[in-house]
Deep mutational scan, measured.
Amino acid sequence: TIDEIIKALEQAVKDNKPIQVGNYTVTSADEAEKLAKKLKKEY
């Protein structure tokens, strides 16, 4: 679900690790936030 994706992003940001979500690779908190907002609009 979208919530699980967002939790995974938040965890990756805390661990400061890049995370791959679908076609996106998120490497920073800023990118994670942008991706989360984008995904919320889509779903």
Rank of each mutant, 00 (worst) to 15 (best):
V21A: 02
K14W: 13
I6P: 02
A12E: 02
D30L: 12
D15A: 10
E10H: 05
Q20E: 10
E10V: 07
I19R: 01
I2Q: 03
D30A: 15
D30I: 13
E10L: 12
V21Y: 06
K38M: 10
K14L: 13
K40D: 04
Q11N: 05
P18E: 05
I2Y: 10
N16S: 07
I6C: 06
K34T: 11
K37G: 07
V26P: 03
S28D: 11
E42M: 11
K34G: 05
Y24N: 04
N16E: 06
T1C: 15
Y24S: 04
I2L: 11
A32C: 03
V26L: 06
K14V: 11
I19N: 01
K17N: 09
P18H: 06
Y43R: 07
L39M: 05
E33R: 10
A29D: 02
P18L: 07
T25R: 07
V13K: 04
E33Q: 12
L9P: 00
K17M: 14
D30G: 09
E42P: 04
I19L: 11
E31Q: 07
P18T: 07
V13L: 08
T25M: 14
Q11L: 08
V26W: 03
L35K: 00
N16A: 09
L39Q: 01
I19M: 08
G22I: 03
V13I: 15
V13W: 10
A8W: 13
Y43D: 05
K41F: 13
K41E: 15
E10I: 11
T1V: 06
Q20L: 06
K14R: 13
K34S: 11
T1K: 07
V26D: 02
T27S: 14
G22N: 09
E42K: 10
N23C: 09
Y43M: 13
Y24G: 04
A36L: 15
T1R: 08
D15K: 03
I2E: 02
I5A: 03
T27A: 11
I6W: 03
L9W: 03
N23M: 12
V26A: 10
I2G: 03
K14G: 06
N16G: 15
A12Q: 03
Y24F: 12
I6Y: 04
E4F: 08
D30N: 07
E33I: 14
K38W: 14
L39S: 00
D3K: 13
K14H: 11
N16K: 08
S28F: 03
A29Q: 08
K37V: 11
V13N: 05
E10S: 05
A8Y: 07
A32G: 03
V21T: 02
T27C: 15
